[in-house]
Amino acid sequence: MSTPQVVVVMGVAGTGKTTVGALLAARLGVPYAEGDGFHPPANIAKMTAGTPLDDADRWPWLDAIGSWAHGRAGLGGVVSSSALKRSYRDRLRAAAPGIVFVHLTGDRHLIEDRMAHRHGHFMPTALLDSQFATLQPLQADEAGVAVDVGGSPEEITERAVRALARLREPAG
């Protein structure tokens, strides 16, 4: 049996990182950590006010997520993080080598509609454009998979489980 992985569920706001992340963790039998919980209060206030975070805002947040992921090495875990830029993912990998990414992707209009109908989240729909503008999709040399967010959370999770299993298959 292989060592459990630490998986980062990434993507723009509204793709279902929290929902899919929790379902994926349950399917894999590992703990789930909500990436938003690693934000300092100033970041939450900034986003709530409709102001996008800059890199200086994100570094401490990414370092906290990376520290959590490092502590789960060999044990497995799932954590959500937008991880929009390659440099952010590189920072997470530096803290926790061996992590893999599940990039939740989808049609902008579908994601915007889902954001408009969710309740109790601080991220306004107005920041979606800045998220897409910042997004650098996974590159071929990054350990991870892209999973479309069409369908139910359970369907998305099942696609993620299958994609991760294929990723772990030996090359050849």
Rank of each mutant, 00 (worst) to 15 (best):
P40T: 11
S81G: 14
Y88A: 02
E169M: 13
L92F: 01
L167M: 12
F132K: 04
G66N: 03
H117Y: 10
W59M: 09
P97W: 09
W59S: 04
L92C: 05
R93H: 11
T105F: 02
L92M: 04
V30F: 04
G98L: 13
S67P: 06
T48I: 14
G16K: 02
A73D: 08
A56N: 11
D107R: 10
G66T: 00
G66Y: 05
I111G: 00
P137K: 04
V9R: 03
K46A: 10
L75F: 10
E112Q: 12
R168C: 08
R159Y: 08
S87L: 12
D148T: 11
G21H: 06
L128N: 03
N43S: 10
D90W: 07
S152Y: 09
G150Y: 09
E158Q: 13
T48C: 03
D141I: 07
A42G: 12
D90P: 07
E142K: 03
A22W: 04
G35L: 12
S2G: 11
V161P: 08
V9G: 00
R168I: 03
A95F: 12
E169H: 13
T134K: 04
A49T: 11
L127R: 02
G21L: 07
L24F: 09
S87C: 13
A96S: 06
H117R: 15
W68E: 01
F38Y: 15
T19S: 07
